[in-house]
């Protein structure tokens, strides 16, 4: 379980002094949950995900983590773009203590990068980068995957593969996906929440959340 209790986050900016981007977020993610968080650009989605991941500290509030949590998956975070896909796979394997050979095979197989697996990541298209990132994170047995738009560029075939993994690992694995796109949340999530005015509202039903989000 991961629990956020009254989490506030303040950013300093040079022009306007400081500004609260999160104003009292409460959340609880359990094993097997697949939660989508919808929010407009600049609503603080990525910041919230970094706080979930524990790589950024909240200004105020409490976080309890009782699961192993992935790094925020998306945007080239946590990998080295001058290195090849295979070198990044080895790095992730070493870093998280996974067997090298197996991880390499898994990532090669899952990402379907073909010969590009041996090319520097900076030469990848955005779809290829997403596939690599998802493959790298799925290669580690996290209990919770934090996805920051990395699923938004994959095609239908890749989407199915990701869903399949999450389905099989459901007993252990949860997923938290942030997106501004209601379609992606509908495709991958069972419940959803909206991040608005620095607060998170949870909805039991994805469709209900989407309706509320689109009505904004």
């Amino acid at each position: 379980m991961i629990e956020l209790e009254n989490v506030w986050k303040r950013f300093e900016s040079r022009q306007q002094g400081h500004r609260y981007i999160l104003r009292g977020v409460h959340a609880r993610i359990r094993r097997g949950d697949q939660v989508g968080i919808l929010g407009r650009n600049g609503a603080g989605k990525s910041t919230l995900l970094r706080i979930f991941a524990g790589v950024e500290a909240p200004t105020r509030g409490r976080i309890r983590r009782e699961m192993s949590i992935s790094w925020p998956i998306g945007g080239g975070y946590g990998i080295q773009s001058s290195l090849t896909g295979i070198a990044n796979a080895r790095f992730i394997a070493r870093l998280y203590g996974m067997p090298l050979q197996r991880t390499e095979e898994f990532v090669a197989d899952f990402s379907e990068l073909g010969p590009y697996f041996r090319e520097p990541v900076r030469t990848y298209s955005s779809g290829m980068l997403s596939r690599l990132l998802m493959a790298l994170s799925f290669a580690v047995d996290f209990d919770c995957y934090l996805v920051d738009e990395a699923l938004s560029t994959g095609d239908a075939r890749f989407a199915n593969k990701c869903r399949e993994v999450l389905e099989v690992r459901r007993a252990n694995a949860a997923m938290l996906l942030v997106s501004h796109n209601a379609g992606h949340v509908k495709k991958y999530c069972k419940t959803a929440a909206i991040l608005r005015n620095g607060m998170l509202e949870f909805y039991e039903d994805v469709d209900e959340a989407i309706a509320a989000y689109q009505g904004l």
Partner: peptide, 25 residues
């Protein structure tokens, strides 16, 4: 595709050595 080995928990020291050697490589 869904099946990856579960890791055994390791001591903080072993974990730090692992992180540093990954960064070194």
């Amino acid at each position: 595709i869904a099946d990856v080995p579960r890791r055994a928990p390791s001591s903080p020291l072993a974990a730090q050595i692992r992180v540093i050697s990954a960064l070194f490589m």
